[in-house]
Amino acid sequence: MGTGLSDVRNMWLVRRSDGAIHVVGRDGWPVEVDPDTPDLEIVPGWRPAVAGVRHIGGTVNEPPVGVATEMLCGRQVTLPRRPQRSTPVLYDCHACWYVWLGCD
């Protein structure tokens, strides 16, 4: 389902009365969101990858070096002083995804 970053900035989350969750695109048409299959490409903001897992950051922009930031799932991330080699993203964090969607 991957979307570009420019598309992500113009999307918003909508929960219908029947409980279905949709992301509405900039064209006004809903994009189906499956709670069981995370797709962090549609989430705006900072999405750091830690040990192969991509999380949703607690901030919109990347924080300064050395500042500890809490991800939506509760994991603490501190940016190192020296840039690290980027690790490949193996999967998206389900806990961050559920918190972002507002699922119980």
Rank of each mutant, 00 (worst) to 15 (best):
V24Q: 09
R82N: 08
W97Q: 09
N61I: 00
P80L: 08
P44W: 14
L79G: 11
N10K: 15
W97S: 10
L72T: 02
A49M: 00
C96A: 04
R16C: 02
V53C: 04
D104S: 13
G102P: 01
S86P: 09
C103V: 14
H94K: 12
G19K: 08
W100H: 12
A51R: 14
W29Q: 14
W29H: 15
E32T: 11
P88N: 09
D18F: 03
Q84I: 01
G45W: 06
P83M: 09
G28E: 07
W12S: 09
H94S: 04
C93E: 02
I42E: 05
V50T: 01
R82C: 00
D7Q: 15
N61Q: 12
L101S: 03
T3A: 09
G28A: 07
W97G: 06
C93V: 01
H22L: 14
V67R: 15
Q76S: 13
R47T: 14
I21K: 12
V53Y: 05
G58T: 06
P63K: 03
M11G: 04
P83H: 11
R81H: 10
L13H: 09
A95H: 07
L13M: 12
D104N: 13
H94M: 11
L79M: 11
G19W: 03
A95R: 15
R82E: 13
G2H: 05
S17V: 10
W12F: 15
T59S: 15
H94T: 03
D18G: 02
G2A: 08
H55A: 04
E41A: 13
L5A: 13
W29E: 13
V33A: 13
A51H: 08
V99D: 02
V50D: 10
D104M: 04
V33I: 15
I56A: 01
T59R: 15
G66Y: 04
W97E: 07
H55R: 05
W100K: 07
R26T: 01
V8D: 02
R85H: 08
V50F: 08
R75P: 00
A95V: 09
T78M: 13
I21H: 03
Y98C: 10
G74H: 03
P44K: 15
L13I: 12
G57C: 07
P30C: 05
Q84H: 06
V99A: 13
P44S: 13
S6H: 12
R54T: 04
W12A: 03
G2K: 13
Q76A: 09
G57T: 03
V8M: 11
T87A: 14
V33F: 05
A95M: 01
R82S: 10
L101K: 05
G45K: 07
P63F: 04
L5T: 08
G102Y: 07
G25E: 10
T3Q: 10
P48Y: 08
I56E: 02
V8S: 09
D18C: 04
M71K: 02
R26I: 00
T69R: 08
V77K: 04
R9D: 09
A49F: 00
G45Y: 07
V77Y: 15
D34L: 06
V50M: 02
G25H: 11
T78P: 00
P80C: 06
P64H: 03
P38T: 01
W46Q: 08
T78E: 14
H55W: 02
D18K: 06
I56M: 03
Q76H: 07
V99L: 01
R16P: 00
G4R: 10
A49H: 00
W29P: 00
W97T: 08
L72C: 02
P88A: 09
C93S: 01
L90A: 07
V60A: 14
